[in-house]
Amino acid sequence: MKQQLESIQKKALEKLETIQELRELEDFRVAYLGKKGELTSILKGMGSLSPEERPVIGQLANEVRNALEAGIAAAKERLIKAAREEKIRQETLDVTMPGRARKLGKKHPITLVLDEIKEIFLGMGYEIAEGPEVELDYFNFEALNMPRNHPARDTQDTFYITEDVLLRTHTSPVQARYMKDHKPPIRIICPGRVYRSDAVDATHSPIFHQVEGLVVDKGVTMGDLVGTLQVFAKGVFGENTRIRLRPHHFNFTEPSAEVDVSCWGCGGTGCRICKGEGWIEILGAGMVHPNVLRAGGIDPDVYSGFAFGLGIDRIAMGKFGIDDMRLLFENDIRFLRQF
């Protein structure tokens, strides 16, 4: 009987090696360990054994059972692993095939630039103010130190609705409106659409977008303006961007400056984009003119402030390398989906 058991174990373990499928393995288990299995039937003959033999054979039988069960478990693991590997092999994809197209829409490049600028100034404690595009002459010009018949008005080819109502030529009237309704400290940016009577071509549009900035508080200096514009320029054009201020004249600021940033094309060494200058003019700025503060009901002997205004469309064109302004308003899907 002992021999019988040992031979069963040997034969069974050899058989196990050859099993290739899970169902075969189950048949094997039934054949050996099932109620009518070989090992079971041998053990049924245990009754005929002597009392001395019984525990010995019993232990041996258990060992054989354990060995078979362990063998079956190992074989099962081997088969599952093999089956999984086979499945993986079969379902391998050509991962270089193109992905399935998604339908996510894109924001307009002007919105993208505007969002970036808003983020920078929100981070510095500015609020976002808005105002009407069809605007009173008073807020667009007079409150900004440009009385009627002032020659500076001629430089901003204005669309008029009536003598007193016009399409705002800049976002600066929002400054004037805001100062009337709010007391300092003031920190706002005013993004929006502006209008000038320019024919449409690659570099001009009668409608474009600006962001105006206004800060009024006690003791605001031109140094604060320079520092703020530096943060802005680095934020929009990159950490290595430098700015340069040149004296200029605007009626609503004094001192006034035109502000250049180091060229995004060449970093300042001169290239086609900056026409060899190394600098690109992007905004106008200055210390708020005392007359403008006064028009807003703010005492220029107590408060000072700075303001700046920049064109978004040109910045978007520069950032994205767009060479024709008309593309911004044409809305060709192939254009819009690039951003």
């Binding site: 404690g125 500015y126 800060v215 140094g223």
Partner: peptide, 19 residues
């Protein structure tokens, strides 16, 4: 203008920037 030292409204009351 470019010799003016940049500063960032230091010493002014902090303000909330929120949409």
């Amino acid at each position: 203008y470019n010799n003016i030292k940049p500063s960032l409204l230091s010493g002014k009351e902090a303000m909330r920037g929120k949409k």
